[in-house]
Design a protein around this nucleic acid. Structure first.
Lengths: 256, 256
DNA sequence: AGGCGCTTGTGAAGACGTGCACAAATCGCG
DNA sequence: CGCGATTTGTGCACGTCTTCACAAGCGCCT
């Protein structure tokens, strides 16, 4: 399907066999594996079986093995995976060997919280700059960083190598901010504003909408409620709901 | 496939043909359609074509039609969909006709922002109570709500009909909080803590992990960077990257 | 009334993701 | 050195999701 399989790109290819193009579903799970692996490493484990790691990451062990097999063979049959080696591999594939600089635009309610979130630092990211369009907010210090006006974005982007832009503005401002980010060369955007962004080809957008998450849960709540009102399908148990609500599947399918 | 197709459940079934069980992928998109429809309604549109709505929601029009067809036939051929009617239908299916009460546990950095987020109110939810385990935080007022100790959860749950629990605690506390929520009858949980929750069957968990979103973007960033180092596939354009990075697809696949 | 243009709803095909089940590989022990 | 226990890596079958392409239906205009 894809014809880029050159083992020796002149630039800087060590023994690493260049990026295999992973299925998107696998990519979405790798960070979860990585987090679980860090936990295991902190707990002193040197190796872990696919079963063990799958349990810690909340997935099926066959799925985990297949996911990892896409990275290459980094396990030992009969033993398991070397925790430290696997961490290095996943971090490399995810591009986390460099600490990526994140620019956050919009320091309102949510943006403020994101700017102060300590979890990013430990997972490969560094909030490099804060921006807002509201001049009354410009100059404010948050977590050791000064809030700048969004018009300064080009200048700041020239100094710092911004890798990812995070949009935490109100919805009406988001599209314009996205265009400004793209204009200074940002090709990855995480959008918290409840709206669709239109961006050129080659720019990746991921969206997180808190209300949507709640609405999806609301649907399942609604469905569960309407099922309990139905005549029993033969079961009398009060521990489990009637119907095909299998939760290992649910936790899986829904958590994605 | 499913044998619950009773048109007249005694309780309160009007002409509504009871909940069809929708594909999970469809459920995940309905909230996006709903938001787009509200925008259209505010802009004065009475009807909208599948093409128009699909554009506003950022999806393929065929997919949108198939999604909506699962709800029943609420469009008119040659005309389109009645905006107001479709809003009602989707809100019903998602269980948003009642304003659902949300309990938020953990008023740290992120929890604080969530408690103050105005976006919930307009989209079918009401933050009914705030909890924290830190006694020094108990009593604090946020957005008109008092923070209570998490041990009061049973009492409060008895008064308010809590529909959804939101966990915004540090990871080590999340599992215990989840168990407390389940114990008081909560069957839908939105988890912001970076850890896997284990819950009984019949309880739905959705997870939002900000660092994971960034790491997924990081992967694509890494991949794009390694692609630009490859010999050109024949293209000379500097507007588009080489390789098969089709963005309509990306925005779609990634945004889920 | 009839025809024409437009839009929905859907059958079918293909792409994608999942999970089982097992062969291949490795370690440790006798 | 060989054998059994263990665990990875993967072929295969199945289910879900997406997309195309088109028939069926609706309204409008003549």
């Amino acid at each position: 399907m894809s014809q880029h399989r050159h083992p020796g790109v002149p630039g800087r290819a060590g023994a690493v066999p260049a990026l295999p193009d992973l299925p998107e579903a696998t990519v979405a799970r790798l960070p979860e594996y990585l987090r679980a692996l860090h936990n295991l490493a902190d707990a002193g484990h040197e190796t872990v079986s696919s079963e063990g790691l799958a349990g810690a990451a909340g997935v099926n062990s066959a799925k985990l093995r297949k996911d990892l097999s896409h990275l290459g063979s980094y396990g030992t049959r009969g033993v398991g995976y070397d925790v430290a080696l696997l961490i290095d591999q996943i971090e490399f594939v995810l591009g986390l060997t460099q600490r990526r600089a994140v620019a956050l635009v919009g320091v309102g309610n949510l943006g403020h919280a994101l700017a102060g979130y300590a979890g990013f630092a430990g997972r490969g990211f560094r909030i490099a700059a804060l921006f807002d369009a509201d001049t009354s907010r410009v100059g404010e210090m948050i977590n050791g960083l000064v809030v700048r006006h969004v018009d300064e974005l080009p200048r700041v982007a020239a100094e710092e190598a911004i890798s990812i832009g995070v949009i935490a503005t109100p919805a009406p401002a988001a599209q314009a901010v996205a265009e400004q980010l793209v204009a200074v060369g940002v090709t990855s955007i995480l959008n918290f504003a409840p709206c669709v962004l239109s961006v050129p080809d080659g720019v990746d957008v991921r969206k997180v909408d808190l209300a949507i998450e709640l609405q999806i849960l609301s649907f399942h709540e609604h469905r569960k409620a309407s099922l309990t009102a139905l005549p029993a399908t033969g079961g009398s148990a009060l521990t489990a709901l009637p119907g095909g609500l299998t939760t290992p599947d649910t936790q899986e399918a829904i958590g994605t």
